[in-house]
Nucleic acid binder design. Structure first.
Lengths: 154, 154
DNA sequence: TATTGTTATACTCTATAACTATA
DNA sequence: TATAGTTATAGAGTATAACAATA
């Protein structure tokens, strides 16, 4: 109360005023906002962001290996093991023998896995539609294009 | 090798093709790219993203309390304790007595803290300039505006 | 020797709950 | 009683290193 409180209240600038100038901070806020919503949209399917992403890649790339999946998801192979374990336990994907190489697995989404992926895809798209309702379709596309150009060099 | 590999190589679509349609995925990729670079830019100052943000808020809001800082950073009060401990140990901020309320602290950046904040601010701005070099100034501003409108409703 | 998948381990970030000292 | 700060603990998420089986 008193001193500190009064000082803050008299101040018309937000507390994070110094941070708002940064693209990184703005990006993080938007990311966390969208992420919190996305988690709720796929929770009913027993999926989390990581398993959602992994299921998507396996569903769209039949017979992908765990190492390739790790590469696609930008995570370590050790992390993929846990994800694949979880998806397999849920009956959404299978680890299949590869004829030519007995070291690796060919991952495939099961029928249930494909259905779950399509359901999850629709749910996330619906929630993004809601979260991005304040932007026109053109603005949404423009936003995606601009985001993809970050770090891409001049 | 063989089957899976061939299938992937023949495919002209990226492995994460199914994910690229989502704003959340696009946002996350951009965020992580920028974040990785940002971490390197403030590492020489002994700062990490969390302490950078906390130092910024304290520097710009003298006599702020820990609870207010938690609110500004969107984290719990328990998390603030660790951040303030770290910044205090580094001699960048101080915990000061509040005359009217013996429960709370009035946080202030030290002279060294203010200098460090200004230095960090300049470094991050320089690195963002580099990471966003592919975008015009108008595009960068437009990007920030669009990001701030996410989740803001129709 | 190199690679695939695996396990064990640890670190970061964050949250929850219970505690203390004040109010 | 409610609030500020604190502590302990736990949970994601991710990374590193060492290992066995296979190439």
């Amino acid at each position: 109360m008193t001193q500190a409180m009064n000082k803050i209240e008299q101040d018309d600038r937000p507390l994070d005023n110094g941070l708002r100038q940064f693209m990184g901070y703005t990006l993080k806020r938007a990311y966390l906002t969208l992420r919190a919503d996305m988690i709720l949209s796929i929770e009913p399917l027993g999926l989390r962001t990581r398993t959602f992403s992994a299921l998507s890649v396996v569903a769209e790339n039949p017979d992908i290996t765990q190492t390739q999946l790790a590469c696609a998801l930008n995570i370590e192979r050790s992390g993929v093991v846990v994800l694949v374990d979880e998806l397999q336990r849920a009956g959404l994907i299978t680890r299949n023998k590869v004829p030519g190489d007995r070291r690796s697995y060919a991952l495939r989404a099961t029928t249930k896995g494909m259905a779950t992926w399509k359901d999850a895809e629709a749910r996330v798209l619906a929630h993004e539609r809601q979260m991005l309702a304040g932007l026109t379709t053109e603005e949404q596309e423009n936003l995606k294009v601009l985001l993809r150009r970050i770090g891409a060099g001049a």
